[in-house]
């Protein structure tokens, strides 16, 4: 068995101390150790985006990040979007626009969209499509996902 490393991470606002073997990815640790199964496992080569989480403010494919690399980082997963049981505006917009069909890609889409809006509160359609191109949706809900991001951006302006 491989030597493990002690890492300290903050996941969805909660500090966590974990023992991880070096070859386990952040996705493995989120899903198997922390039981946060919102981030999904699909391609494992950084192509599909189903495992997208936010590390220190930036989206990553968590299948390509070793958990030990995340030591000291702040991590946000889809489970961290809703606050006190009420949906984040982006989640609400995904629901209202019908962006989730089978739903499997949606946690990744949400994290990518969340980070996009944090950096660019008023993206154009082209910017959304480019910003979310790393998140495949085989149901083909791309237009609804784009609409949800646009609606969230507009909502943000009104508030």
């Amino acid at each position: 068995m491989a030597e493990t490393h002690r890492i300290e991470v903050t996941v969805n606002g909660l500090p966590r101390m974990l023992e991880v073997p070096p070859h386990h990815t952040l996705l493995d640790v989120l899903r198997d150790d922390l039981r946060l199964t919102g981030a999904k496992e699909c391609c494992l080569v950084g192509e599909c985006g189903a495992c997208t989480v936010i590390v220190d403010g930036r989206t990553v494919d968590s299948c390509l990040v070793l958990a030990v690399e995340a030591d000291g980082c702040e991590i946000t997963t889809v489970e961290g979007l809703a606050q006190d049981g009420s949906l984040d505006p982006l989640q609400r917009a995904f629901l209202d626009e019908g962006a989730a069909q089978c739903g499997f890609c949606i946690p990744g889409q949400l994290m990518a969209a969340h980070a996009l809006l944090a950096g660019n509160p008023h993206p154009t359609v082209a910017e959304i499509q480019e910003g979310l191109a790393g998140n495949l949706c085989r149901c083909g809900s791309y237009l609804q996902i784009t609409d949800a991001v646009l609606a969230t951006a507009a909502e943000g302006t009104r508030r």
Partner: peptide, 12 residues
């Protein structure tokens, strides 16, 4: 809204 939609947007 989709029945089952909340689970799909919260990761639950």
């Amino acid at each position: 809204n989709r029945v089952g939609g909340i689970g799909r947007v919260t990761g639950s």
